[in-house]
Structures are given as structure tokens and as C-alpha cells.
Design a protein around this nucleic acid. Sequence first.
DNA 1: GAGCAAACTATGACCGTTCACAATCCTCGT
DNA 2: ACGAGGATTGTGAACGGTCATAGTTTGCTC
Lengths: 336, 336
Amino acid sequence: MTSDVGTRRPTIREVARLAGVSHETVARYLRADTRIKEASRERIGAAIAELGYRPNLVARAMRNRRTGRLALLLPAGVAISSLEMLAGATDAAGAAGYVVEVVTLGGPAGVRSERVLELADSGLFEGIVSLTPLPAGLLGAGATRTPVLVAPHYDEHMRGIGALADASCVADLVEQLAEQGHTTFLHVSGDYAHTSARNRRQVYLDTIARLGLRSYAVVDCDWDWRRAWRAVLDLPADCGVTAVVGANDKVAAGAVRGALERGWRVPQDLSVTGWDDNPLGAVMPPSITTVAVDHGRLGRAAVSDLLALLREEAPAADERPITRIIWRESTGPAPR
Amino acid sequence: MTSDVGTRRPTIREVARLAGVSHETVARYLRADTRIKEASRERIGAAIAELGYRPNLVARAMRNRRTGRLALLLPAGVAISSLEMLAGATDAAGAAGYVVEVVTLGGPAGVRSERVLELADSGLFEGIVSLTPLPAGLLGAGATRTPVLVAPHYDEHMRGIGALADASCVADLVEQLAEQGHTTFLHVSGDYAHTSARNRRQVYLDTIARLGLRSYAVVDCDWDWRRAWRAVLDLPADCGVTAVVGANDKVAAGAVRGALERGWRVPQDLSVTGWDDNPLGAVMPPSITTVAVDHGRLGRAAVSDLLALLREEAPAADERPITRIIWRESTGPAPR
DNA sequence: GAGCAAACTATGACCGTTCACAATCCTCGT
DNA sequence: ACGAGGATTGTGAACGGTCATAGTTTGCTC
């Protein structure tokens, strides 16, 4: 096979000339058309091998309007929170014969919208999944000529919302702790600019109220473990708090650290829960009870929904919860 | 602006007709050619706005052979180890006006090579960065018509090699611990199928030998924290080990857990080091001394090198180390 | 107001594939 | 030997831009 960097690639017509057939017959060969004489088939195959021919997908896409590619939009400057989500998305796309392109969108909102429109009309993609919200105008019927699906998992700053901010597990956590005798709780929170942080606090407060429990305080930690640490260190000895609900594993670990530093045992004197299932949380002494979020499934679902949109089918409903509590050493029965 | 999903997009010629100029003048307008009369410019701008015209990048790429896209190859089924690396790659590409497409390659080696060739000749990409090694045949001069750069950071199973497996920091760790009086060490290792695990062990052993220190044992932990935990629990009381070098944060945390469980204090009785800078490692009591690896820079460098290849420039050398030790509470002077 | 260069604009081919349709080649039955 | 009709193949026009080149205006000088 002859080929060199920079050399013009052989075209379907050159293959055809070498094989002694018309270019269209070669095209038929390439699309595995069965109605080709065995003799032609062999000559074409030989010609392709000899020239090292490979189809030009750009030309094909131009004629076809089928590119086999989906775009995954991310706001620039903010890392996607989860690789699993990306992996899930590429998996789902791959299974359907699509390839995913990760495109980052930079600049102010106006510029970003403009780029989305460009992408949607670029002919490069059959569909677009955006992990960041888009201006309403872009989504109205007919605003773009390519289906655009906004995955309802992140806000414009890639802060989890929707399913990612679903805090219902907090209710389970509090309920189960209450069953183990805990009555006075403390919540160490995330940054309230994050919907997930707000929701966790709210469900915490609601559940406390619903079950007639007591919340000693909600500490605004801004995801910063030092504040959770400080808060636990500063708890009055008679505050009665026996359980801390953390907005994520980091603040939970901060709370654990504070407790240990003042001589409290975890969980004998204080139970602590986290969120995110950081792998180290399973190892550190004590290992941390946490909530695992199935990001991979969210990614797969986003792409599946887009593909459904492309095929004009109804999106597949998936009622399974994407969060799941993992009970570990940091929680136990209330003292006494 | 009139536009509907599925509607054919307006072409440059329709814009030209509406503006009363030739299609080529519109093309000049689009490429910001300055030599256009103000009057024409205005009419063209108005026509573009009215029709909602946006250029078809596929058609442009076909004529141009310039797509502005780079492919980033990953073996399917293996999650990329680091988002930062991906973020770095897209950053570097974005800065140069390119967009990165993440393509996963599945199947056995033969099929994968074939897909790489297809991609290289597809006309879709101006260059390809592969994070997984490719068969030697694909890389020889002229095997493909598109530059392919294999980033030397991962092996075929996405296990870190090259810079990612650089274990030279282990020498620094051991040296500094020796300066603090430590003489007898233990290494809790990773899976030796990983070059990084092998290198860390080797540099550990070499440094121990070079400095005339003693290695009590190398424990084959396979990245499993339970084995590190067990190993520390089972250390004879008189073994003399005062420092544990862990192949990553998880086994390090396992070692810490083992030490605490048998009543040893960390770092007063036992110093422990990890690797990877897991964020929880900074919080857990004691916080873990670790090695941070700058994945983002590796991603940026891979793309920069590819772009240099495209421009036929020499790749920019960057001699800064990508690893950096972060000293934390889990290490301290040797006891007594 | 003719002459000329510079500024601007138009024309038609071309990139590599697929599509729609037309043409040719066989294989039979009669 | 001939026509029918299926099997196979060929032809030329699209797709929507850019390139190369040629053509038309315009502005200026004398």
C-alpha cells in the first residue's frame, strides 16, 4: 500500500479506474451492497488495498448530512465534575454508532449562545447535548436546525442541579439515624450558591421537622472542611449533638477531625455522614458513611435522550434512584 | 430570522442573491476580507441576519482540508484517569483555535489499528493525539496522512507510564524522611502490572540502598488498602519500621488505619506517605503527605506537541517536574 | 475626459462522496 | 433467435463552500 503524509489521498474514482469499474460501483461496494458480481467485488477489493484507499468522511457527511457525531458542550474553565458522566455519555453514543465530541464553550453568555448556534448549524453534528444551560431563545421550537438537548444536571457554572442536586437521601440518612436513637443533629453545609447544597440543607431541615427531631445548628461551611472542623471543635459540651450530616465527604471528614481532636469517638460519641463517595472515605479511620451518585448513568441517559430525540421516539424513562447510601463506620447508635 | 428544525439551511448563494452580490463576495465577507465596499458589506450583513445564515463547516472543510479539529483517542472501557488531563488538552487546543473530539477505540488491537487508520484518513481531523499506544506499524513515516502523536503517558490499558510513572519523588520522600531520623522503612505497593507501581518500588529500593537505610519489607498490595492495613497490623512490635512509603493515597490511608488500630500514633510512632493528592487526604486525621501530579499540564503538553508537529515546528521543551511533594501531618521526625 | 492603476466583484471549476435515474448485460422461456 | 425482466453497472448532477482567474468600477492624474 502506498501512502505518505501530506500526499493526496486516493479517491473513490481512482479506485474505480484501477478496478476497471465506475466510481458508483465502488461506492456500492463500500456500502456493502450485495448486488455486485463476485469478479468486480474482488477487483475493487484489490484496488482499495493497493491504493490504501479509505473513504473521506467529510465528503460523505456533506452529501449525506449524516456525520455520526454528537457534541457534548461544556462551559470552558470549569472542569466537568465527573469523568464517569463523560464515560457514560461516550458509552451510550458508541453503542448507537455515534462518536462524542467534547466542545468547551467560553466567554460571556452572548458569545456562548452564538457559538451554540454556529455548532448547531455547522453540519458537523447530528445532535448536541449541553451540560450547561442555554438561553431560552436557543431552545424554542425551530431556533436551531439540529436537535439540542440540555442535560438538566448542571447550572451555568457546572454546579449540580436536578438529579445531581436531589437531596432525598438526606431524609433517609436522618430517618435511619433517628431510628438509632439520635435526636439532636448538626448540618455542615456546602456553598449555597450550589443548588445541591441548598437542597441538602432544606431536606435536612424538613426531615428534622417532620420527625420532631432537633437541629442544633446549620453551619454554613461553603464546602470548606475547616469550617466544619471549627464548628465541631466549638460545639458546647452540653449541646446534645450526636449526629452530623455533612453536605459532602470533605466537610464530613472535617467534622470527624474536629470530633477526634476534642476527644470524641466516632461513631460512639458522634455519628457523621458525607456525600460523594470519595474513595478515600472508605479507608480513612473511621470510614465515612456517604451517598454515592451514579454519574455514569446520568451521562448515558443524557445521550440516550438525545438519540431518542433524533429518532423522534419518546425518551426511555428510568425510575431508579441515582443516589444510594453507603453505611460505614462513621455512623452508629446514639450514645447512652 | 426564519429557521426551523429540519428545514434546509440557507446557503451562501441564497445570501448572495438576497444581498444582490455574487456568492464569492459573501464568502469574502465571511472571511473578513477588508476590501469590500461599505454598501455591499451592509447589505450582506442584513441578508445573513435575515436568513439566519451560518456557514456549513463540513463543506468548508471539504474544500479546505482544514477542520479545526483534533482527535483524542482513548481505549474504550477504560475511563481516562484524569479529567484534568482532558481539560488541559482542550484548553491548549482551544487556545490555538482547535476543538478536541474524544474518540474511544474499542475491540482487539487489530480492529483498533484499523479504526485509527480510518480516522487518520477520514479528513475529519487535522491531527490525532492518542493516549493509548498504537502498533508500531501505524507510526512509521508515511503510514498515515494525518499526524498522529502518541502521548507517552499511558500504556494500552491506560495505566500511567512515562511522566505519569515517574517515581523520582520517592527518592525525595525517602531522603527527607531519612534526614528526620528514619532508618527502617516499609513500602506498601501498587499493582505491579502498572509501571508506576513498579517504578515507585524500584526507586524506593534504590534510594534505600543508596542511603544505606533498611527496608523492612515491600508489601505487594495491588493498590488494595486492606493489604496495607493488614501489613501494618501484622508488623512485629520490634520490626523497627518508623516510616511507610505508600504507592498511593489509598494504601497509605490503609497503613494509617492499621497503625491507629494497633495504638500507634501517626506520625509520632509511624510516618506514612501517599501519592495522588486525593482531596480527602488533606482532611482526614492525620492529613496525608502525598505527591501531586500535574495532569493538566500533561494534557496541554500533548496537544501542544501535536500542534507543533502540525506546524512543523520543534516541540516546546518543558523541564519543570510534573510531580510535587505535599508534606502534611502523616509524616514527622522518627520516634526517640 | 482619456488613461491607468487600484479597488472591488463575478464566474466557473473543484473538493470526494451519494443520489436518482438510465443503460447495459444476462438468463430464460418460447 | 428473440423479448422479458431481473441483475448489475454507468452517468451526471448534486451537497455548500473556496480557489484561481477574469472582469468591472472607481479614483486620480494630467
